[in-house]
């Protein structure tokens, strides 16, 4: 209990943060409380200690059984169920036992300890700030130009240290968010690298497709639908985009980027399984329900002379969810 320095300035070494003013100095018996062991605070909490001992003992024995069972289950490779059950039994019984020991077989209290206000006294503040400022003034401010130079050096270190920490993490977005691998003439290819032909899709069918050079691409993924056998015109300017009823939309939801993989064939809608945005195919995948703010971009298709379904061009707008630089078009 050497909480004091020789100079008499209070120095607090206790974790409780109690200043010395409130603490009884040694040898001041009038501050003390004498109790003997018959004081009710010292009695165990259990009304029947013998019984509490017995129950706690049983709990520890059960815990022993549980832990031993775990060992047996492990060596016998009895499976996760027996491992878990035996461990749970052991842990729970052990916990009940230890807790009941503390709850029933120890002094019931209550006890208290004093609490000093957190707020420091003016003297403490003054002394601390005095030391801090007076030394600082003498040692640092006298050579302020050094402090400035040091600060400048440290600032440069801080800035340049951020470069590799941040910039090395990944490439700059550049234009990658604006484009996909769909080009003029891209073959509509399924995940098994099969170029889709007109004959592959009955009416009411759909398949996830990619450009032939980006099969499996997360951004290029597209749904190819075949709701009818005649051309579909979703809006003005897209008269030729869906020949013979083959129509394709980006599979990346404009809301949060999930694959819009849910084709409702009878109602001719695409539903996003993540947040239930609903897109009307015949209206150019215009969102009709849910949080999606923009239609799914439509891929212009044509059918070549051999019956392969191909892209007239890439998407005419960035696919997927919005981003700051994307611009203001809807």
């Amino acid at each position: 209990m050497s909480d004091e320095h020789g100079n008499g300035v209070p120095v607090n070494l206790s974790p409780g943060g109690r200043p010395l003013e409130q603490r009884a100095p040694h040898g001041a018996p009038e501050q003390r409380v004498q109790v003997d062991l018959s004081a009710p605070q010292f009695q165990v909490a259990a009304k029947n200690p013998k019984r509490a001992e017995r129950t706690t003992l049983v709990l520890f024995l059960l815990a022993l059984v549980g832990f031993a069972g775990f060992g047996a289950a492990y060596t016998q490779n009895a499976g996760d169920f027996w491992l878990g059950i035996s461990m749970a039994l052991g842990m729970l019984m052990f916990g009940l036992g230890v807790a009941s020991w503390g709850m029933f077989l120890m002094p019931r209290g209550p006890f208290e300890e004093p609490r000093a206000p957190m707020q420091t006294t003016p003297d403490e503040k003054r002394l601390f700030l005095g030391d801090f400022e007076s030394r600082g003034k003498v040692a640092i401010e006298r050579r302020g130009f050094l402090a400035k130079a040091m600060g400048a050096a440290a600032a440069v270190l801080g800035i340049v240290a951020a470069f590799p920490l941040i910039r090395s993490l990944g490439p700059l977005p550049k234009k990658s968010l604006y484009t996909t691998k769909w080009r003029k003439g891209s073959y509509v290819t399924d995940i098994n690298n099969r170029r889709m032909k007109v004959s592959d899709l009955d009416v009411g069918s759909f398949v996830t497709v990619f450009p032939q050079d980006d099969v499996g691409g997360a951004i290029s993924q597209t749904v190819l639908l075949h709701p009818q056998t005649t051309d579909i015109v979703t809006m003005k300017g897209r008269e030729t985009w869906a020949p013979q009823g083959f129509i394709a939309f980006s599979k990346v939801c404009t809301h949060a980027g999930c694959p819009v993989g849910l084709y409702e064939q009878a109602t001719e809608q695409l539903l996003c399984p993540c947040h239930q945005s609903l897109f009307d195919i015949y209206a150019g995948a215009e969102p009709v329900f849910g949080p999606a703010p923009r239609p799914l971009p439509q891929l212009p298709l044509y059918i070549d002379s051999r019956g392969y379904i191909r892209a007239q061009a890439g998407y005419d707008e960035p696919v997927g969810p919005g981003f700051w630089e994307r611009g203001g078009t809807t």
């Binding site: 809301h255 947040h275 999606a292 703010p293 969810p321 630089e325």
Partner: peptide, 19 residues
């Protein structure tokens, strides 16, 4: 994300997406 109405803020050249 699900209950958010399908709003976005658009202004020339830039946007604040729904999400």
């Amino acid at each position: 994300l699900r209950v958010m109405p399908s709003w976005e803020i658009h202004f020339p050249g830039h946007m604040i997406p729904n999400a």
